[in-house]
Simulated assay, not measured.
Amino acid sequence: MAADVPARPSLRERKKAKTRAAIRRAAYRLAAEGGWESATTDRIAAAAEVSPSTVARYFPVREDILLTGEDDALLEARLRARPAGEDPLESLRAVLLDAVRTALAEEPEETGLRARLMVEIPAVRARLTDTTAETGRRLARALADRTGRAPDALEVRVFTAAVLGALRETAAHWAEHGRADDLVALLDRALDTLRGGPALPAPP
């Protein structure tokens, strides 16, 4: 069956998306030039040519400007579109690897800066915990529907949190090691760890 063709966003939605993108670009540019503390709401607003109240309306928590990238609704939709009988870990692997590839292709500098600031700035790291929890709830709903469990079932919650934890720790590892390795390959490797744990050392 052919997938439904998504409706074209309205003019209002396109304007909102354009404003959000301008705010994000300004914030990343200021953070890259002078650090996150220098990227105040007022300076971001001036660089994006909007009012400070507009920045606050789109991003009530300033750190969300850095952390709002891949849309949670889109991740959920992509997870729901995976084959019904596919292993849950493989479904999430496909969705997350695709999201990371897209981020690296479309916003390589922003992706690297976001990972670095997540490691360096406690407020960014703390906010990431909150936003990851919301992402987890959406993905848990999709997994629950696929597996016939309740969204708040312990197994669903633990599994989803573990996968998103792997994504977070992979990004931190990547940033801490100078972003020299392939982030997609690192995430793929991290997700393998969830299936069997760290490999035991070879006997002497």
Rank of each mutant, 00 (worst) to 15 (best):
T111L: 10
R179P: 01
L74V: 06
L167E: 02
R43W: 09
A161S: 06
M118S: 10
E155N: 08
P83N: 00
G178I: 05
D188P: 06
E110M: 14
V124P: 02
D192Q: 09
R24K: 12
R101H: 07
A94W: 04
E37F: 00
G178S: 07
A81Y: 03
R137P: 03
T135L: 11
L104N: 12
R146G: 14
A3E: 10
D130L: 14
T170F: 03
R43M: 07
D71S: 04
A46I: 10
D71K: 00
E134Y: 08
L187K: 14
A22E: 05
V61L: 07
E120R: 15
G35L: 02
S53G: 10
R25C: 12
V55D: 15
S51I: 01
P122W: 06
G197S: 03
H173P: 00
A56Y: 04
E120D: 15
L183F: 12
L186E: 13
L200S: 03
S91Q: 02
L96F: 14
R82D: 03
P203I: 01
T132H: 11
P151K: 07
P108N: 08
H177V: 00
E76V: 01
L104A: 13
E49W: 15
L67E: 04
A199W: 06
A105S: 09
A166Y: 09
R29G: 11
M1P: 15
D4F: 11
E107H: 11
R137H: 14
R12E: 03
A56V: 09
D188H: 10
P60L: 10
R8A: 13
L143S: 06
A7V: 10
A99R: 03
K18P: 00
V184Q: 09
W174Y: 04
L194N: 01
E120Q: 12
E76N: 00
L66E: 11
E176Y: 01
L186D: 08
T160R: 05
K15F: 09
R14W: 05
E176N: 05
